[in-house]
Amino acid sequence: GPREVTMKKGDILTLLNSTNKDWWKVEVNDRQGFVPAAYVKKLDSGTGKELVLALYDYQ
């Protein structure tokens, strides 16, 4: 199956793709996968990378 990404509340993840309104593709610890968009919030990183903050645990 697809590689699952797990996250804990407060984690910072790299946002790869947010074109789908329900599932965003993120990368964390060299793993890529989809997380519910409602579970993360975009951060203003000030760099080229888009980052998101995990609002809830997800696994």
Rank of each mutant, 00 (worst) to 15 (best):
W23E: 02
G1L: 12
G48R: 06
D11Q: 11
Q59D: 13
L15A: 02
L43C: 08
T14M: 09
A37E: 03
L16N: 02
D57E: 05
D22W: 15
L16Y: 03
Q32D: 06
K42P: 10
L43A: 03
D22T: 12
V40N: 00
K25M: 15
T6P: 05
E4P: 15
A37G: 03
P2F: 15
V5E: 02
N20Y: 07
D22M: 12
P36R: 04
L15W: 01
E4F: 15
E27F: 06
K8Y: 08
D30A: 09
E50T: 14
S45R: 09
D22P: 02
P36H: 04
N17C: 12
K8H: 07
L43H: 03
D57F: 05
D57I: 04
E50G: 09
L55Y: 03
N29R: 09
V52C: 10
L43M: 09
D11T: 05
W24Y: 07
T6C: 12
D11A: 05
P36V: 04
A54K: 00
E50C: 10
F34E: 04
G48W: 06
A37I: 04
K41L: 13
Q59N: 14
A54D: 00
R31S: 12
G33H: 08
T47W: 10
S18N: 07
D11F: 04
S18H: 08
E27P: 00
T47G: 14
K8A: 08
E27A: 10
V28H: 13
L16P: 00
R31F: 10
R3Q: 14
P2R: 13
K21C: 07
K49D: 09
Q32Y: 11
E50L: 11
V26K: 00
N29H: 10
R3F: 15
Y58W: 14
I12K: 05
E4N: 13
G1S: 12
D22S: 10
T14H: 09
T6N: 12
V26L: 03
Q59T: 15
K42H: 07
L43Q: 04
T14W: 10
N17Y: 05
Q59A: 13
Y39C: 11
S45Y: 12
T19R: 08
M7L: 06
V52H: 02
E50Y: 09
T6Q: 11
D11E: 08
S45H: 09
V40P: 01
T47H: 13
M7I: 12
T19K: 10
S18Q: 09
P36M: 04
N17S: 13
E27M: 11
S45M: 13
M7C: 04
K41F: 09
L55M: 08
K25C: 13
G10E: 02
A38L: 09
K9W: 03
V28C: 10
K25I: 15
P2N: 15
D30H: 10
